[in-house]
Amino acid sequence: MKKTTFNQIVSSLATIAWGTVPVYFYAWGLIDKYLNESFHLIALIGGLAMMVLGLFNLIHASRHVSCGHDHSHEHGEKDDHGPDNDHHEQNPVAALCLMILPVILCTGFTKHEYSKEALRWKGLYKQRTLRSLYSNYNAEFTRELLEKRTPRTGEGNFLLQFTELYWSAGDEKIMKIYEGLPAQLEGRLIEEDPDLNHDANRKRLYRVVMTCCAADAQVLGVPLQFGGSLPTLPEKSWVTARGKVAFESIDGQYFAYLKDCEVEATEAPDPRAQSRR
């Protein structure tokens, strides 16, 4: 086998390997763990295109092609683009080590979600504030308006968006409006930070908020305080939590939490349905 043909085959395999990853994630319903919904279709089409490009070049790997374009500059000398006299040759070892192996290894090692350590690192137990929500707001936002625009369950709990409750902490007037509101939230359940759980009566609800891909994700967490025993659901279970909105200050930072909570296991929400909501 010629060296150029061998290089062509390795490059084709590298391209196919890269294309397989997004197609596999899409086909197995894992893509929403990695990308925001706006990138799903792009990833699928891109993956398929990589596979087609790789397969096409693999099929034609040993074919010698020559074309006369740019002969105007070359006067019938050697061809600009023939596989045997290319501008430069790819190093098949580099393609193998830097394109094929990392993808295979990472696909083998990934658990398609963050570990607990990474969730902590990404802000699970922190409260961030969004100042633009509070500055100079006028007096029109009231409890009545909040109740009017927020749907309720049959039991009378307000279906708050996770981000809405999370960002409500930080401004005294806004906190007063939300304080005591019976609310229902969906999220994933995890242990509370021991430093924030001195009475051992808390768990934490969290959501991963992604803008482009998992690398830019922020983890938003809301503590859940239970009157009775703590739920025994597995870590990271999807749950529906019901309780009353409350706020507390820790080291000068306000946190929203739900008190007198109860939780029940639920299905993971469909990201497509969520984005349409």
Partner: peptide, 9 residues
């Protein structure tokens, strides 16, 4: 992998 599948297309 998340950055790869986002950027590669």
């Amino acid at each position: 992998l998340s950055i790869l599948v986002e950027g590669a297309p």
